[in-house]
Structure formats: C-alpha cells, structure tokens
Design a protein around this nucleic acid. Sequence first.
RNA 1: GCCGAAGUGGCGGAACUGGCAGACGCGCGCGACUCAAAAUCGCGUUCCCUCGGGAGUGUGGGUUCGAUUCCCACCUUCGGCACCA
Length: 822
Amino acid sequence: MNDSYNPNEIESRWQQKWERDGIYHADIDTSRPKHYALTMLPYPSGDLHIGHWYAMTPSDARARFMRMQGFNVMFPMGFDAFGLNAENAAIKRNIHPKKWTYENIRRMRTQMKSMGAMFDWRREAVSSDPEYYRWTQWYFLQLYKNGLAYRKLAAVDWCPKDNTTLAREQVIGEERVCERCGTPTYKKLLEQWFFKTTDYAEELLDFSAIDWPERVQTLQTNWIGRSEGASVIFPTESEDPIEIFTTRPDTLWGATFMVLAPEHPLVDKVTSPEQRQAVEAYQAAAARQSDIEREAVDKEKTGVFTGGYAINPVNNARIPIWIADYVLMTYGTGAIMAVPAHDQRDFEFARRYGLEIIPVIQPKGEALDGATMEAAHEHEGVMVNSGKFDGTPATNEKGMKNPAIKAVTEWLEARKIGWADVNYRLRDWLISRQRYWGAPIPMVYCDTCGIQPVPEEELPVLLPEDIEWRPTGESPLKFHPTWSKTTCPVCDEPATRETDTMDTFMCSSWYHLRYLSPHYDQGPFDPAEYEYWMPVDTYTGGIEHATMHLIYTRFFHKAGRDMDVMEGVEPMMQLRNQGIVLGEDSEKMSKSRGNVVAPDALVAEYGADTVRAYLMFMARWDQGSPWNSFGIGGVYRWLRRVWDLFNVEDRPEGKPASEEEIRQLRRKVHQTLRSVTRDFETFQFNTIISSLMELLNTMVELEPAARGSEAWEEAVEIYLRMMAPVTPHIAEEMWSVKMGKPYSIHTQTWPQVDEDATHEDTIVLPVQVNGKLRDRIELPPGFSDEEAREAALASEGVRRFLNGKSPRKVIVVPGKLVNIVI
RNA sequence: GCCGAAGUGGCGGAACUGGCAGACGCGCGCGACUCAAAAUCGCGUUCCCUCGGGAGUGUGGGUUCGAUUCCCACCUUCGGCACCA
C-alpha cells in the first residue's frame, strides 16, 4: 500500500493520544537526572503569532532532544496575563480586561496544543489567577519586610486630560502627545514603590556561575554601568549642600559651575527671586521631554542660571549653579560639578553660556588655554592649577589605578569633604503602576499607624471585578467607591488601600517557580518540587529581554535567596536567545501594518511538523529573519519525500548493495548523526534540518540497492529518531505504525555515533598556489605531511604554474591543505 | 544619541580553531513523464570572460603563505534604552 502523507489526520490523532497517555508529564523521579527546560511565557494578546512558534518550537525540539538523552525533562507553559493591552481593549471595545484576557488564553492554549509541543499542561500557571498573584503579593511583602521595598517620588508620563499615567508607547511622536486624546503630556512626580535592585548591582555583574551568551552579559554589564570615582559635598549659599558623584575627582579644581537636573529637589531652594520665572519655565520645558532626548550627545545643550552659588570645597571658589536638561535626576545624585576643560558636554555648555573654563590637566607638550581651546581634553596629562597636586600625573586609567584620582580621593577623605564611591547606571526598580489590570500592592495607609503591610493570611488582596471604565482612562481602582476602604491591620481604624498595582515584570520574575506547583497553597512553591527541579537548566527566549526581564529575575532570585526563600546563586543556568521574525516586508510584525503571519493557516495547509521544521530551517535561530513564505514548500516536500521513501513496501528489490555502498550509507548516517547531535547541543537548528535533507538525498540514491539490508534498517531507525524532536508527529507515525516499533518514539533514547563508520576511504586534499585553489589530490587516510607535499608538487595543477622552477615555500596544513608559494 | 547584534548568489542561509566560499532549501532554466497542465523525477544555476583564466562575502584600509573569519575607520539594517511584554 502506498498512502500519501496527510499531516492533519496524523497530527491530531497523535496529539490526542499523547495527551491521553500523559507521555509529557514531568514528575519527580530521583532515578534520572532532571532537566528543567523553560521558554519565556507569552502575553495573551489575542492570537498565537508566528513569533511564538519561532520561540517555542525549537525550544520544544531541544527539550525533546534532552529527554532522548536520558533526562527527566520538565517543559512547562503559562501566561503572563496582567498588563496594559487588556486595559486598552477594555477602553476601546468595552470588554472587561479579565474577560478579554481569559478568552485570549483559551484560544492561545488551543493554538499552542496544535504545535505538538511536550508542554506539561498540568503545570500551567496564569499570573492573573488569584492563586498566582496571591504569591506575587506575598513576595512583595517579603521584600518589604527585608527592607528591599520603599517609597519615593518618581516621574511618570502624565496626560492631564485623561488624568492618567501613560506608558512610553502611549506617548506619541516628537510632540509627545497622549495616544488617546492628543493632549501634550508631561513628566509628573508621584510617590511610588521601588525595589532596591541597586543593592545587588555588584553581584549582578558576576556571571561566573552561569552559561549565558557573551552578548547578554555585555548588555547587562553596560546596563548596570558601574563606575568608580568619588562623591563630593559642595556647600551652597543657601542652607543645603549639594552632593555630586564624579569619576574624575582629579579635575575638581577645574569645576567652574554646577548643574542640577531641572527636577532636583534643591532647585527651588537655590533659585534667586530674579531667576525664578526663567527657572520654572525651563523646568516645565524639560518635563515635556523624554530621557532619551535629554541624553542625546549631539543635542544642543541648554540650561538656565538659578541665581544661586555653591562653594568649590577644594579651593573655595564661588561657582554658579545652573539647571540643564542634560543632567538626569535618575542618574547619580541628579547633580554634577561641571569641569568644562575636561568634559565635552560641560565644555559645550560653558562655551554657549560664556562660563569660565580652567584647564587642570595639562597634556604633554601642550599648554591648554581655557579661552581658546576647541574641545574638552578628556585624556591623560599632568595636574595643574590644583594647589599642592600640581605635577601629579593623571593617566587614562579609571578609578584608583589612576595616581591623580587616588591622591585626590585620599585627600578628600582626610578632609572629610568627599569619599571614594561607586556609582551605577542601574536604577532601583519602580514597580508601581497606576493601573487596574495588575496585582494590587498589598499595603494599607492608616492616618495613625502610617504605611502597613496587609497581613500574609489576608492575601490575596483581590482585584474588584465590578469596575467602571471612565472614558478618560483613569485607574478604576482609585475611583472604585468601596474597594480602597479597609481597616488598619494594626489599630483596626478605617484605612485606605494602596491603589497602585505591580509592574507585570514582577509576575514574570518568579513564574518559573510557580510552574513547580501551580496550585500549591502553603507557599509560592512546593519545597520538594523546588529541591528536585531548580535551577532552570535551559532558558530560551527573545534577545529583547536581555536587560530588563533577565536582570529583574536574577535580582528576584538573589533577593529570595537572602530571605531564605530560594537557594543557589542564580535562577537560570544556561540561556539561549532567539532573534525576531520580521514581516515579509522586513518590518516588525504588527496588526496595523497588516504583515502578521498567522500560524493557524500554515498549520492547516502544511501541518505542524512542516511549520516547526521550516521555522528551524529558515534562519539562524539566534539571528531571526524576515518571514519568507516561499521556502516552506521545500520543507513540506522534504517530509513528503521522507514519507514516500520509508513508506513504500512493494518496491521491487534491486541488485544487492555492494560492500562499498553499505559503507557509504553508514558513513553518511553516522556523520549526520554526529553533526545533528552537535547542532542540538549548540542550538543550531537550521543546520539540523539541512543535514537531515542531505542524508535523505544520499538515502534516496542508495535505496534501490540498500533496501532490505541491515544498514538500511539502521539508517531508517536513526533517521526517525533524529527527526523526532523536530517533527514529532510524522516521526511517531513512521516509527510506531509504519515500522511497528515500540510506542512511543519520544520515549526512545538518542542513537549513538559509530565513530568507525564515519571514517573516509580516501581524503581529497585541496592544493593551492599562492593561496588560490589549483588542484585536488587524493590520498589514503593517515597520510604524512611529506606525502602530501610530494603529491601536491607532482600534481598537474601545480606543475602548470611552477613551470619547472622550484617553489619559494610549501605550507602543509596537516590533514587540511597544501599551499605552494612561488 | 547611547548600549548591543548583523551585513555572503536572484532569495533564506552554510562554511566547526585563520585553510576548498556559496552546503541545504527557495526561485529560475533545460529535460523526462503527460493530449495538456499540475504534481513528481533528472540535470544545471555567484558574476565576468577571448574558455586559459579573472573578480567576488556592506565600503575603504591593514596583518598573514592564506581572511566571510583577526585589527582600524566608515556606511546600512535590526534589537534595547527602565510604564509594551
């Protein structure tokens, strides 16, 4: 019989059977090594996107490979279900965020099941379920009790018309207007909750315990942005001194003015009555800009004099205090000493406003003059105009390795006007959101007892469902008539609930722990499950999460460890990132562009196996690529050729295979097995598919002779096992139905490479003349360098170029090639 | 602007440690099968050319017997920039 490949029938049949038999259930089994394979959970935005398939199906193939390698593999899935989109849908379509979210989850769960992935759905966790966010809130309380959560003023983008906070994506264009109503937005200060991520900055810089891509380590290191220097106190003519951080304390004598961020709390105090109007106008203008605009180096520097003065503590010079938007409140102390001679931004600012420029680091053989210099001198030299430090060499080294910095810092410490310090670009994590669809922050405000945590036994603080969406977009929690009214847990008098909810990054910082025991109610996770499964062995997900999510979750784990809730240095041992699938037009896929590729239609047309294999084949996984709808037919053809080749039973026997042909078949099979195994280990999914295609081509060629032989039987068995992680359905069908092998192929072990079979009979060695390929010579395996040299010189291609003369040099790369220089 | 990554045939991509550039697939061309078409199968396919060869991995330079791979400068595209997740 010769039936044709019908993926839809095969796939739904096997998916049902696998689910019935629970073959992907991951349970504690101490007799086998465990492998926790985790892939980033999706946000339930509506339909499953081809990007989800691109992220998840190769991760699934990798998890299946590990399972065949003998590991007890857990591969869970869930939903990061709180977030802004649900609220946007609520406002736009008048649908409750909860309803919208859970409808999307139901649809996406069904779509995900069509992938044929080995998800253990018993472990599904949904972050917006009360049984989940109860523990998100519990974690908040632990962080609070351990001094890692605190409140302070922070700026948000604010729409005055809608009376609401806006996300960055809701602030549109250079005019920075509200996406809903077009009103110009501005930065507004609100009292908000923070986690002290900076307490862990130093430890987060240490990647020695984990196998994460160099690229992610670099991104995180730069994001944390450690710099060494000194903090210095500048007295002012008003009461309060100004604290600054500088990486160049050796240039203190050149500080000719100070600059505060426009929103710095001291601005008000130092501003003179004459300057007040100008200062306030500038503050308002700065509040209209984003930090990215303000940081831009090529932007023209602007600022306003406050009318106030500070005293340079090293030489008692009276220096003016300015405000300027290039100083950010979120970096350092929000104030700088300006040394125009040695900092380019300060230099440009000083030139523009006619401020004094005093060189204090003199480069070798050059005399800088503040009046005529054209750019700041930011490099090495010798200290000048710096009192007793004149003549101290300043090198290009950073921190205390620089003798000038070291000498000055020690002197500052002795005089108690400054101290050696380390500053980080990393900021504390702002977790307050003025939104409805998130986990409520479990805190209570009492007029008598102040800020009080909700007692743990009262968790979860449930979101009210009877909410009203005002057309303006104000947070429904704040305006709910009764929800925020409660009693103080200490004095039992009337009190008010915190109406802000938590950043959804908080939910996704510990979801890998909720998968361990999603319904456990004695804690965030069952300790026995933690003991067996943690840490995560392989974490896969998008490179776009390199800095935020992947720093938050590391912070969360380390903080949990210090609270004795979790164990170990890191939560995820190995990280691998996939790139992004763009639309066919090379633009980011989005509904508004109309370039979204729907996997459902592709699955209906080609089957899940083809879609899975094509996504692995079409690009380097870590690179991503624009979607290309033309190539998928080639992968479908591959699977059909496999089907036809392995499935034909009544093909006439040809002449029996020669020994040479058998050797050739086994060589190709085991060479392929070697490279496919290596590629699975290193996440090179695209070459797994092309290797399998190549092997198929060889097998098609040898089939008429080899069919019926032991080697052919071996080839087919190995082939199907190599395919199983990539295309689980067709592999199962061929294995347990067509070949009658024991169900299931997915519980089989990975085949072993027969190294002897991989050896070549003869070696073809390229021969170059002056680095250009001129000939190829054939040599027996194990040939010596001398043999290679002789054979190369004797070859036709070389003799033509040599013309009887002797070569200048002969380079023999053992086993690789011969290059003759003439 | 800052941080990070990537640029290879008509297209997606391959090339393991500095050693045969273009594996595998798409597309295209020719042929077989067919009344015909589709499907399938076979052969060919980097460009130029005087058929001996020459050029060629974003651009320009450098190191080397030899560079897609290492170094310097530049250009373009993509990801992130802290309230999208």
